[in-house]
Amino acid sequence: AVSDRLIGRKGVVMEAISPQNSALVKVDGETWRATSGTVLDVGEEVSVKAIEGVKLVVEKLE
């Protein structure tokens, strides 16, 4: 799938994300809905860990 190429890519949080709420991230110039197990604020850099349906699963870039 096209989205599989995004695993391992870096992105930027466009809307705050919490474990209860998905929000938008920008990866390679494209906007995607994403979820995370932690709270992520706007502007934080993230890494794509997986794809669940049409959502990216991201975590904060260390």
Rank of each mutant, 00 (worst) to 15 (best):
A1P: 12
A1S: 12
A1M: 12
A1F: 11
V2Q: 09
V2C: 12
S3K: 10
S3V: 09
D4Q: 12
R5T: 08
R5W: 08
L6C: 06
L6F: 05
L6I: 08
L6N: 03
G8W: 00
G8H: 04
R9A: 08
R9H: 07
K10C: 13
K10M: 09
G11L: 01
G11E: 03
V12P: 02
V12T: 08
V12L: 07
V13M: 10
V13A: 04
V13E: 02
V13F: 01
V13K: 01
E15Q: 11
E15Y: 05
E15F: 05
A16F: 14
I17C: 15
I17A: 15
S18T: 13
S18I: 07
P19T: 11
P19R: 09
P19W: 08
Q20V: 09
Q20W: 09
Q20R: 10
Q20F: 11
Q20M: 11
Q20L: 11
N21E: 09
N21F: 11
N21V: 09
S22H: 12
S22P: 10
A23D: 02
A23V: 14
A23E: 04
L24P: 04
V25Q: 01
V25S: 02
V25H: 00
K26I: 13
V27E: 00
V27S: 01
D28N: 07
D28W: 02
D28A: 07
G29S: 05
G29Q: 05
E30T: 05
E30H: 07
E30L: 07
T31D: 13
T31R: 07
T31P: 05
T31E: 13
W32F: 14
W32R: 09
W32M: 09
W32N: 08
A34Y: 05
A34H: 02
A34E: 08
A34D: 08
T35A: 07
S36G: 05
S36Q: 02
S36C: 14
T38I: 08
T38N: 09
V39F: 14
L40N: 01
L40G: 02
V42S: 04
V42M: 06
V42W: 04
G43N: 05
E44R: 03
E45G: 06
E45F: 12
V46P: 01
V46M: 01
S47K: 13
S47E: 14
S47D: 04
S47Q: 14
V48M: 01
V48C: 00
V48S: 01
V48N: 02
K49T: 13
A50E: 06
I51C: 05
I51V: 11
E52R: 09
E52I: 13
E52V: 12
G53Y: 00
V54M: 14
V54K: 12
V54A: 14
K55S: 13
K55T: 15
L56P: 02
L56W: 00
V57F: 07
V57E: 05
V57R: 06
V58Q: 01
V58W: 00
V58R: 00
E59D: 07
E59L: 00
E59R: 01
E59K: 04
K60S: 08
K60T: 07
K60H: 06
K60M: 05
K60N: 04
L61C: 09
L61Q: 06
E62T: 12
E62C: 13
E62K: 12
E62A: 12
E62S: 12
E62F: 11
